[in-house]
Simulated scan of single mutants.
Amino acid sequence: MSTDWTDIPEPAPLSSVTAATVVHGPVIPPQQQLLLYSPDQWEDFVQEWAHFCLKQQYIKVQRFTGSGDRGVDIAGFTDAKKLQGVWDNYQCKHYDNALRPTNVWVEIGKIVWYSFKKEYTPPRRYYFVAPKGVGTSLAALLSDASKLRDELNANWEKYVRKEITKTQEVVLDASLLAYVNAFDFSIFDAKTSLQLVEEHRASPVHAARFGGGLKARPDAAKPPAVIKTDESRYVTQLLNAYAEHIGQPVSDPSALASAPKLRDHFHRQREAFYHAESLRVFARDSVPAGTFESLQDDIYDGVVDTHDATHQDGYARVCAVTKAARELQITANPLITCTKPKDRDGMCQQLANEDRLQWTQS
């Protein structure tokens, strides 16, 4: 018997290799990351998803824990009647497999049984939520309410009768069977991993959990012609700094008309303040709480020695501090990838607005 030998061909070159790819490897889509989650990681994700996403849809969202949950996991309430009103149920399960009919018969049975006993009204919608979604068999049943009902009846004895409660067996007698046959099984559905990821994408913790970078930052609003109350403190500080520089009082911005350099500086600092405020709003919606404040603290720590040094006047102090802020090497904060030099000037004015920085000594 002869053997043919061939050389191993050179592999095709990788395309679009970046520094980030070399350091961190290729980006794994979030829905694929969900497949790798441990039960604890899944629990953390569900908590985030429920807190940031479901709370936007309902007046109240609660999670039921313990053995007496009566088949209710995460409930979203549309009115004050809660379980006696209009509500939706999200049954969050972590299995090593895509959900099968045998995984859910008892859960469906609980909803039927406890609503039959009038412990709550049937939910408006009932979603199975699992990292690997539902398998083809269960998906087919969820798309056919009549078939789902018939299969529940057929599997009641084996999977439901002894599992609803530990205190009794729930027999599918004539009255319960009539209730099951009249029950609206179209309420049962499932959330796909793609749906979960898309809903979670709107949360401020999405990038921190899944990576992939921050979404595009909107343009900052232009400062209004009239100075607003919430910017009055840093404006007053700037006017005092200008007064110290020219040696005469500056009561309001209109007094800067005869000093074009200071007038233009003032307009730039107001623009910078609004840039920083837009970054604050962007951070609130895009990164975990405290991220923007941490960046502010980095700016403060980096400029405070310059701030405390001796300067010719308040205007010189402002210029020295903002210059120092722009030159800072900040790499750890996730907002740094979308922060511009003008934001750093603006954060200095935010710090002045909070009296953490003082442009004049008096």
Rank of each mutant, 00 (worst) to 15 (best):
344 R>S: 05
169 E>H: 09
238 L>V: 00
113 W>P: 15
309 A>Q: 11
2 S>I: 04
260 P>D: 15
265 H>A: 15
25 G>R: 14
236 T>P: 01
295 L>D: 05
225 A>R: 14
208 A>Q: 13
174 A>S: 14
223 P>G: 09
165 T>C: 08
25 G>T: 14
57 Q>I: 02
109 G>P: 05
182 A>L: 02
159 Y>L: 07
245 H>R: 01
198 E>G: 05
163 E>S: 10
221 A>K: 02
255 A>V: 01
109 G>K: 04
232 S>C: 03
49 W>I: 15
136 T>P: 01
284 R>I: 01
133 G>W: 11
21 T>V: 14
82 K>T: 05
306 T>V: 12
341 P>M: 12
14 L>V: 01
360 T>E: 08
202 A>G: 03
29 P>N: 01
322 T>K: 02
329 Q>F: 09
190 A>C: 08
166 K>S: 01
133 G>L: 02
314 G>Q: 04
98 A>L: 06
333 N>E: 02
11 P>Y: 04
104 V>G: 00
23 V>N: 07
294 S>N: 07
100 R>L: 13
277 E>T: 11
359 W>H: 08
331 T>M: 15
178 A>C: 00
253 P>I: 15
320 A>K: 05
94 H>K: 04
351 L>R: 03
106 V>T: 11
32 Q>E: 06
86 V>A: 06
57 Q>E: 14
276 A>C: 09
252 D>F: 00
165 T>G: 08
306 T>N: 01
274 Y>C: 10
17 V>G: 08
300 Y>N: 11
139 A>P: 00
130 A>R: 03
338 C>E: 11
220 A>K: 12
291 T>D: 01
74 I>E: 02
92 C>I: 11
249 P>Y: 10
182 A>M: 03
275 H>E: 12
296 Q>D: 08
70 R>L: 10
54 L>V: 00
149 R>W: 02
313 D>S: 07
150 D>L: 09
152 L>E: 10
59 I>A: 08
299 I>T: 11
109 G>Y: 08
76 G>F: 08
103 N>V: 01
307 H>M: 03
217 R>P: 12
234 Y>H: 11
99 L>Q: 04
89 N>I: 06
141 L>A: 06
163 E>I: 06
207 A>V: 14
32 Q>K: 13
279 L>F: 08
155 N>R: 14
175 S>T: 03
138 L>K: 11
328 L>D: 14
96 D>I: 01
240 N>I: 09
8 I>Y: 15
318 V>R: 09
295 L>H: 04
217 R>W: 09
113 W>D: 12
64 F>Q: 05
91 Q>R: 13
168 Q>A: 03
229 T>R: 06
125 R>P: 11
311 H>R: 07
357 L>F: 11
107 E>Y: 14
